[in-house]
Amino acid sequence: MKTCLVVDDSKVIRKVARHILETLHFTVEEAADGREALTRCEAASPDVVLLDWNMPVMSGIEFLRAMGQSNLPHRPKIVFCTTENGTAHIRAAIDAGADEYVMKPFDRDTLHSKLMLVGMA
């Protein structure tokens, strides 16, 4: 079974994402900020990370930059999941290492299609 780490400071978003991902047969872990996510990835790298942009402690972009400097044996696919929809934000996310980008709010079909694009569904 594939694993996904859902990183978002909103407990509601984490619950919604967990529910969708579990229906897509993922094992799901959660983190409330980028620092917690980085610690989890260093302990056991997931197959994919669903990543929020705006979070306390460490933002999604900061997490991506830290991942780029880490020595993980397996780099997870990164799907940015945020309300930031400007072209500059999307470009910054891709440039920082995101594999795909999905806008909030999202539904099962949208998330499934993004996971397919990164080879995780």
Rank of each mutant, 00 (worst) to 15 (best):
K2H: 14
C4H: 09
V6M: 06
V6R: 05
V6T: 09
V7E: 07
D9L: 04
S10M: 12
K11D: 15
I13V: 15
R14F: 13
V16P: 10
H19K: 15
I20F: 13
E29D: 14
A31S: 15
A31K: 08
A31R: 07
G34L: 06
E36V: 15
C41M: 15
S45V: 10
D47M: 07
V49L: 09
V49E: 06
L50R: 06
L50C: 10
D52P: 09
D52F: 04
N54K: 12
M55L: 06
P56S: 08
S59T: 15
G60T: 03
I61A: 09
E62Q: 14
E62Y: 03
F63P: 02
L64T: 04
R65Y: 01
G68T: 09
Q69A: 12
L72S: 06
P76K: 01
P76A: 00
I78Y: 02
C81S: 13
T82C: 01
T83I: 02
T83V: 07
E84A: 10
N85V: 02
A88C: 03
A88S: 13
I90T: 08
I90H: 07
I90R: 14
R91L: 02
I94R: 12
A98H: 04
D99L: 00
V102A: 13
M103D: 05
K104I: 00
P105Q: 00
D109K: 11
D109F: 01
T110L: 10
S113H: 12
S113K: 12
L115V: 04
M116I: 07
L117N: 08
G119K: 07
M120P: 01
M120A: 11
M120Q: 13
